[in-house]
Design a protein around this nucleic acid. Structure first.
Length: 560
DNA sequence: GCCGTTTTCGGCCCGACTGTTTTCAGTCG
């Protein structure tokens, strides 16, 4: 645990405190004590200065840190951990903590499972479910047992694919090894996929000179003349080497997808060439044509250059041959953000922070969409007045909106007279995820029939790697969206990315408009718009399909 | 455990939903 010579970072300290909170929960301690550790951990993680150097008196001046936790932070800074944590850890099996990540299993539930049934691991829990031992516990029943069973299934299905920010993190640690501009991230990363399995890198550098550097960044798992595979922080990274003059085909082949490359290979073959990473080989005389850019390859084959996001073999090759590819939306077409939270609900940013972020991004507007469940109608009226005042200080115009709950009985979180005063209304499902398809779908359809609802937020509710989509029938939703003129959201949070590309593509075909929104809870998250636009491009969207490419006046007219 | 006092103990963010103990506790966002 102790790392001599390295000062504990705020993250290190926050992790210890958050871990303490989890252990206290399992041990059945007072929930407010547990919440105090969680709060302290969040607070430390958010601070911009390192706390390891502060003395205890200075530490207690931080809100949420009292004498006790100050002493523990001091101890963590000195030794890497703290005695009380170690002591508590010794009384609990190590495998227990991860069970808290099972949906439906919170600290109280886990405490009872451990104390009454001696459950220590995922396997133990699964056995207890199978043996119907959970429903027999006081305070538990058959439904709770089934909920845990469902939770275990979801937990086991968690994918090990990286989210885009995770991939960016891995890329950053590898990129430090390359010279500027001498490498490109290819593969599904470059195609803009919402999750990434393996990071493919094409490097136009000398392989042998780089090999040593690469082995210092991670464990080398495979090595050949053309490539080196590494494991970096548990992620698979594949580096392929090429020369500047052959980058075109090397990048094309490394970007994929399989289906796309197979189809493109057929096109090349029909013209008398064999496509490979080194170039196009003339099948009649074996002569190799090399290309330094992808554009040259496409042009040589007599087709328009296909953007990486379209390379999925969904008909793009035929269109490229007819020079009829869609003119895809670009990040620079975006004039505003349609989904943002503030401290009025669960966001960490003020209205001013949002407007500043909008100014910095050159936006014409950002819609403030705090949760209806957290803002009473009277407070919403106050917020609207505050928005007016904020707008006097900024170029970017804040619009009054709401993310109104579609409640489990299908009604909305605000009455119509409240919704009528808002510029833009997003309606979202935040509860009743386990409802069956028809009930859930009808909730969404009913919400769309409300004349004030402009957008359906995160239409499937999935959380990447953590929660599957709820059972909504998207085809019915799309048809009804087209009929009612309701837009469907492309939620650009890298943890949601909802709608997924294929549904965006369907929605566009149905004539449904799409609304790209970051769901930003803090100002740094407005930059996530790039993920949403990648997804829109993968769904073949042009600027016309995306309502936040509209000017402010056109948007207000659309929403009215 | 922290905080703010009506300064040494009582309240802690909160609403929706779910399941169960059918009135409240646990989970979630």
């Amino acid at each position: 645990m102790e790392t001599p010579g390295r000062q504990a970072t705020n993250r290190d300290i926050a992790e210890r405190l958050a871990f303490m909170a989890r252990l206290l929960g399992i041990a059945g301690e007072d929930r407010y004590r547990l919440a105090a550790y969680e709060r302290a951990a969040r607070q430390i993680d958010r601070l911009s200065f390192p706390v390891a150097g502060l003395d205890e008196e200075e530490l207690t001046r931080i809100p949420g840190i009292g004498d006790r936790i100050a002493g523990q932070i001091h101890e963590i800074a000195a030794t890497g951990t703290f005695g009380e944590l170690v002591g508590l850890q010794a009384t609990l099996p190590g495998s227990l903590v991860e069970l808290l990540d099972i949906p439906g299993v919170g600290p109280r539930t886990l405490h009872v499972l451990y104390k009454r049934l001696g459950i220590q691991s995922l396997d133990d829990l699964e056995q207890a479910v199978k043996g119907h031992r959970i429903r027999a516990l006081p305070g538990f029943g058959a439904k709770k047992e089934r909920a845990i069973s469902r939770g275990i299934r979801q937990f086991r299905q968690r994918s090990d694919r990286m989210t885009r920010p995770q991939a960016d993190g891995v890329l950053a640690s590898v990129a430090a090894l390359f010279m500027d501009g001498e490498y490109v991230a290819a593969g599904s990363y470059r195609r803009g996929s919402s999750t990434i399995g393996r990071l493919e890198i094409v490097a136009a550098e000398d392989r042998d000179a780089l090999a040593d550097h690469l082995s210092s960044a991670g464990t080398v798992t495979r090595e050949s003349a053309e490539r080196i595979s590494l494991s970096v922080a548990g992620a698979e990274v594949n580096v392929r080497f090429t020369e500047t003059g052959r980058c075109g085909t090397a990048l094309l082949c490394a970007t994929g997808s399989c289906g796309f490359l197979a189809r493109l290979g057929e096109v090349a073959f029909a013209r008398g060439y064999r496509l490979g990473p080194d170039g196009l080989q003339d099948t009649s005389n074996g002569r190799l044509h090399t290309f330094s850019s992808e554009e040259e390859v496409f042009s040589f084959l007599g087709m328009a250059a296909i953007p990486p996001e379209l390379r999925e073999d969904r008909g793009e090759i035929d269109l490229a041959l007819q020079n009829a590819l869609p003119d895809l939306v670009d990040l620079s077409d975006v004039r505003g953000d349609l989904h943002a939270h503030t401290t009025w609900s669960d966001g960490r940013q003020s209205l001013d922070n949002v407007a500043e972020a909008g100014d910095a991004r050159g936006y014409e507007y950002i819609v403030i969409t705090d949760h209806s469940s957290r803002v009473r109608p009277e407070a919403l009226a106050k917020q609207q007045a505050e928005i007016e005042r904020t707008n006097r200080r900024h170029t970017c115009r804040l619009l009054a909106g709401s993310e109104v709950d579609i409640k489990s009985d299908g009604t909305l979180g605000y009455e119509n007279r409240v919704l009528a005063d808002l510029d833009v209304v997003i309606a979202s499902v935040h509860s009743g995820f386990a409802q069956d398809q028809d009930v859930l779908t009808r909730r969404v359809l009913t919400a769309m029939e409300n004349e004030h609802v402009d957008i359906v937020g995160h239409p499937t509710g999935r959380l990447i790697g953590r929660r599957p989509a709820y059972a909504v029938d998207l085809l019915r939703v799309m048809k009804h969206a087209a009929e009612t003129g309701t837009a469907l959201e492309i939620n650009a949070s890298p943890h949601r990315l909802d709608l997924e590309d294929i549904y965006i593509w369907h929605a566009k075909k149905e004539g449904v408009k799409l609304a790209a929104g970051t769901d930003a809870h803090r100002s740094g998250e407005f930059a996530n718009m790039r993920y949403g636009i990648l997804l829109a491009r993968r769904g073949w969207c042009t600027p016309d399909d995306i309502i936040n490419t509209l000017s402010l006046s056109a948007l207000l007219e659309w929403a009215s």
